[in-house]
Nucleic acid binder design. Structure first.
Lengths: 209, 209
DNA sequence: ACCTGAACACCGTTCAAGT
DNA sequence: ACCTGAACACCGTTCAAGT
């Protein structure tokens, strides 16, 4: 008689995603995950060759959560909605960012949003060879924005450890001192749209002429 | 008499960067680093409160390596050169990418390239408030591109574990099947320029009108 | 085929002690 | 102030064994 633990790849990866959301990549250990699933650690290795394979599976689950835009809009609007959906998923699972930059989409479910993106670019009349370049630029911008947002790259003005040197920084880096105050007030989603429209306009105009 | 180990923050972080380049973030352990520096593990804790502080210091070293463009060119060309320099550093230290997306520039040396970027945008006649937005979009694109390049996001056509399902993928994801073959042939630097020009044109034209 | 427990070779960090 | 060694509480993974 089998042990009837109800274990399978999907169930393990789902529980791992919950743990990732709560504790981050470093907090997601095989041992804690096994405890949470009420099995021995080594039971997990019947489904994943190692921790890397598990993290990959978690990344695929995240990609699969990207909401595909419904039909009825032009290609440009489809792309805009799709990139917003990508950004939204990364905000739902901010701790998954290190995984997303390590494991590309691979499963059918994970590739669904990529397919939708290619389709929209092709519908705009772009050749397959050019569609690859277009989508790559869009993906780079979306992933980069999410990365910058989630890590708070521009969140606060630079603060050196030594508080006495704040004045020194202002003297050595006048432009940083002048511009930094405005970074704090930016609205993330509006900024995302700002750059996204730039890239979309550039891409689609270039191929319409 | 002090132990004359020649230890200091900078020397430790420099050696850590070498180890990061060779073995990646996971391979950069406090214990191995101490052995490489010929001191006990705990000696490192006199200079860094924990491993995170060390990784932060390594990230600052990487930022400080960004080559600033010389004078003599217009703001647009300066920005183009600067973003290429950022990309170049991330290619010199590809394993530093997880650090760069975790620890923003903070020291004076690390902020030098950010200052140069702001200065160029300001020189283009953009207001400080708008300069913050412009630079943010540029940084997002550059970091995202480096991320996509280094992780090989678009390097190979998607290959599911189950080879029998390759045909199934082609059926379920027709646009992926059509576009993917063209991704392999792309030249990374040319693609970077492709999108960078798009963003630069959009940003600078918007503010010139 | 799936699951277990013990063991191995690692980690980061705390603590008490040395100079 | 700087450095050490021992100890603690963790890791991922191998192995031999169980059903």
């Amino acid at each position: 008689m089998p042990k009837r633990t109800g274990l399978n790849e999907e169930a393990i990866a789902r529980r791992a995603l919950v743990m990732l959301d709560e504790e981050g990549v470093d907090g997601l250990s095989m041992r804690k995950l096994a405890t949470a699933l009420d099995v021995s650690v080594m039971a997990l290795y019947s489904y994943f060759t190692d921790r890397g394979a598990l993290l990959d599976a978690v990344a695929q689950l995240v990609y699969a959560e990207v909401e595909l835009p419904g039909p009825g809009a032009g290609p440009r609007e489809q792309l805009r909605r799709l990139m917003h959906a990508v950004r939204r998923v990364l905000h739902t699972h901010p701790r998954s960012l290190p995984l997303v930059t390590r494991y590309p989409p691979r499963t059918t479910a994970a590739l669904a949003f990529v397919d939708a993106g290619y389709r929209a670019v092709l519908e705009a009349g772009v050749s397959p060879a050019e569609a690859a370049r277009c989508y790559r630029a869009l993906a780079a911008y979306s992933i980069g924005t999410a990365s910058v947002e989630v890590t708070g790259y521009f969140e606060r003005p630079p603060a050196p450890n030594d508080p006495a040197s704040a004045a020194a920084i202002a003297r050595a880096l006048p432009a940083v001192a002048e511009v930094s105050p405005f970074l704090a007030g930016l609205d993330d989603e509006a900024e995302f749209d700002y750059g996204l429209d730039l890239v979309l306009d550039g891409l689609l105009n270039r191929h319409h002429d």
